[in-house]
Design a protein around this nucleic acid. Sequence first.
DNA 1: CGTCCGTTTGAGGATCATCAATGTCCGTGG
DNA 2: CCACGGACATTGATGATCCTCAAACGGACG
Lengths: 244, 244
Amino acid sequence: MTRQAHAGTVLEDSGPSIRGIEIEKRTDGSAKGLLSEPQRQRLAAVASVVSLPARTIVYRAEAELSWIFISSVGVLKAYREMPSGKRRVASFLFPGDVFGLAENGHYINTVQTITNATLYRIPNEALAAMLRRDADLQFQFLAKVTHELRQGQRHAIVIARRDAAGRLAMFLSMLEKHAPAGSHAGWIQLPMSRTDLAEYLCLSLESVSRATSALTRRGIVAFQGGHAAKVIDRVSFEKLVNAL
Amino acid sequence: MTRQAHAGTVLEDSGPSIRGIEIEKRTDGSAKGLLSEPQRQRLAAVASVVSLPARTIVYRAEAELSWIFISSVGVLKAYREMPSGKRRVASFLFPGDVFGLAENGHYINTVQTITNATLYRIPNEALAAMLRRDADLQFQFLAKVTHELRQGQRHAIVIARRDAAGRLAMFLSMLEKHAPAGSHAGWIQLPMSRTDLAEYLCLSLESVSRATSALTRRGIVAFQGGHAAKVIDRVSFEKLVNAL
DNA sequence: CGTCCGTTTGAGGATCATCAATGTCCGTGG
DNA sequence: CCACGGACATTGATGATCCTCAAACGGACG
């Protein structure tokens, strides 16, 4: 049941690492580590490392803000419970993602591990103090949050689609871009369950299932074991992804 | 055709103002001005004020980053053109909103005025330099971007709904909370067109129309002139909003 | 008064949610 | 070694909702 943790994508020698894209122009447009070695070391000095088994709640929505987290190993999900009891996954969290930035002293989403995970945990006040003292470090956080804002907008674009197969294809495409370079020869790892997928894509569990079937039947994507996928027909795949 | 600009919600005596919610605990949870007087004055020193007529493009997606903007008066929209030609409005921008934070030196969305608008325009490098110099100022920007991240997530929750009337009701509810306190006796101003609404809610133009009709027919909301709405049956309205 | 643009309304077709049942994987225990 | 059980995933049938195409309506303005 406990799946293998997502392959670590970040060297963890000297402290937390943050993945993102700079606001200003740089060499290439790919996500990369935003922090310098000294910055990571300073963060590490006030951070504690926590290792959590899969399916552990890190914090709950509405709870009082106490720590800010930086993911180091594993995959997590951030979600909200709707009044009806339905769940909406706002985002999946991968190594190098920051979470726990609250509003008005309270967390907005509930965050839960999907795989085993290792996190850096930094006391809220300590981080705030450090950011106020180190503007360059803070600037990287600003870039990171801006990047997450974009991700949220992309999420909105995905769930705006009417066809389930298209949504799933876009999600796979995003995962593929996000994935660690050295993943298994074109196979996209899907650590999350079908239910998590459904809650992220805003589809019913059954529709996700039908979408995977459809992609398989049409020879566009192959699935294996429910937790891995591979693009077979790249042309059709891209056409589907861009058929918004 | 040119509609009245959104009632100014912010005193503009001494420079740009930013509306948002603090990350850490404060007195109440409502959006408010995040900047101190001195901060506003310092921003004003490097900002220029631009007044734009309705329907003016401020910048286009993919264009090179040159300025960061803070809205002062009026309403704008940020949208992306999809490959198919369809448009998705990512967010509406109100007085006190910041926009133009790019990725990798290029704007992500196209931003266009809806009403006449007045903006503060700050050269990218000048703002970056000022943020790196003034960590407290930057901290307010961080709070603002975090707040916009939440707004994006709420947007995702809205468009996740399956029923058009419910989406519209949630949107009205958001506008109502956002609205300047002294708006006209419970009337919610809708400066944007039905098309803008449709593109924000990810509905067809016709569905928006049918949704307004449905809300009217059911006696929940009254519309007037297409650019104002008022909640008639508050109980049913809230029930609909929370029926997710 | 007529045009133009934006909005509203109608009919038919496509897609997904829901309810229900069946199938698959995997660990457990006999 | 094999049978069992539970969680998860797939498949099928029906109904609800929205999108598309199409046409009628309305106000603003020359």
